[in-house]
Simulated scan of single mutants.
Amino acid sequence: MTWLLRVLACATVLLAPLEGYLQEVHPHLAKVVPALLIMSWVAQRVRERRLPAPHPLHALLALFAVVLLASSAVHAADPFTADYTQRFLPFLVITAVLADVVAREVPVRAVLLAAVGGAVSAAVGALYSLVVDGEARATGPLEDPNDLAYYLVVALPLLIALPARRFLLPVGAILAAGAAATFSRGGGLALAFAAVWLVARRGVSMRAVTATVGGLAVIGLGAVVFAGPVLERALAEKTYIAATNVDTRELRWQAAARMLADNPVLGVGPGGFRSEYPAASRNAEIDEQSPVAHNIYLEIGAELGLPGLACFLGAVALAFVATERVLRARADRSMLAVQASLIAALVAATFLSEQYYLPIWSLVAVAIAADLRREESERDACAARHQ
């Protein structure tokens, strides 16, 4: 059963960026592996008669689930509530399951390698959609280029945790090229913040950053030489869209802030932003009546109130605390990588509604799992000294 948990945990993380491809085969295919992971985990723990190692994250996730279900019950009449509750709740469950499985059965680096592997596959799909399919902006396995960029830039900092150094350059080039092909400004900003963090924490040297920037410049020059017309068309479309995005996101952020101010306890319900947006924005977008907020913090706050937002931010804070504890106990590049990746995810999510995608949740789970592993090793060392 242990081998099955390892395979399913890594497959859950690896297949997450490829959700769009899986849904093309069957609308529910992307849910199969996470569901099998949860069922296998329950069966294993029942067979062992063993509960997960306790951690404050479990209480926080349980409270988050209570807030989610309470908000859903209050706003049950909303047309989007049931669907969005069913989408959100599994992420809380899978976070708890991954934290326990990675703490016991799956090596931390194996999960990080799976995340990079899935992102590389998505990046290849992104480049294919741009070069072969002629898309103006790379999409590949995800419909929205910005969501795709989110997966790719979050995976890039994880490269410093991987042992096979000779593969870092080609893998990094593929991820960076795929992210660049989305023309996502938020993705670029997120990657810049992650790079600054790694340099400040001495996870990477300035020489490495300079070499990376130079490599990206070479890739960009090659793209201009060999795919000039495609890039010109993509840049023209992105310039047009960018101007519109600034205005619409400001409208949506203002509407989300109004919803939160008017409903601070339980929000407007899961998915409620979409149904409440026309009234909250005073019909500011006639052609878009049920959008997303394009800001994870405002959207969670608007839909689940201040308690839901506090639970989300609390889970992220616990992850940072956990990684710092591990780093104080021993030098561990994987924890620096997780920190930088989390920073990239949180910055990118300032411009996107990413609570329904796996990266933030899996990174929180890995951070907590590493902390649980640290606690167990310290207990074992203490017991050995006493013997």
Rank of each mutant, 00 (worst) to 15 (best):
D83F: 08
V111G: 09
V102L: 11
L158N: 08
G186E: 07
A384K: 12
H386I: 09
N245K: 08
Y150I: 00
L162W: 04
G301P: 12
A243E: 15
F88H: 13
A119S: 11
G220V: 03
A114F: 05
A369E: 08
Y356I: 03
A9K: 04
G118V: 02
A96K: 06
A179I: 02
A30E: 13
E276A: 14
Q23T: 11
Q387G: 14
Y356D: 14
V106C: 11
S129Y: 05
S281L: 00
V213F: 03
S205Q: 10
A236F: 01
E24Y: 01
P79Q: 02
V106K: 03
L216M: 13
D247W: 01
L298H: 06
G125C: 02
A136V: 07
A315D: 11
K31N: 12
L235F: 10
P307H: 06
L8A: 04
G140P: 03
L152H: 00
T248W: 05
L15F: 01
S362T: 13
A257V: 01
A103M: 06
L92R: 07
E276D: 14
A103I: 00
Q355T: 13
L304V: 00
G308F: 06
P229Y: 01
S129I: 05
V209E: 11
V111N: 11
Y356A: 07
Y84D: 15
Q254S: 14
R385P: 02
I343P: 09
H28P: 00
A126C: 00
G228A: 13
F88G: 04
A126D: 08
I38D: 10
A161E: 06
E24W: 01
N283Y: 07
V46A: 12
A200C: 13
P52L: 02
T239P: 00
L68S: 13
P229K: 02
N263S: 14
V97W: 12
G215H: 05
V97T: 13
T139Q: 12
V213I: 14
P54T: 07
V364D: 09
F88W: 13
W3R: 10
T139M: 09
Q23Y: 03
L342M: 15
E19V: 02
V364P: 05
N295Y: 04
G188C: 07
A110C: 03
L198V: 10
I360F: 06
C382Q: 14
G125N: 00
A293W: 07
L89G: 09
E303W: 05
G188Q: 08
G172H: 05
A176Y: 07
P141Y: 00
L318E: 09
V316R: 10
A280E: 09
I94V: 15
S353H: 12
A62C: 11
L18M: 04
R233C: 06
Y84A: 12
R328L: 11
I219H: 06
L148H: 04
V213A: 15
V93Y: 07
L15T: 03
G140R: 00
L15N: 03
V106R: 08
Q23M: 13
L18K: 00
V101L: 00
S362C: 10
V171S: 07
L37M: 11
G308E: 12
R137K: 12
T350W: 01
R49C: 04
S184M: 08
L372Q: 14
A331Y: 08
M335H: 13
G117N: 00
S184A: 14
A322F: 05
L8Y: 01
I160Y: 03
W197K: 03
V46D: 05
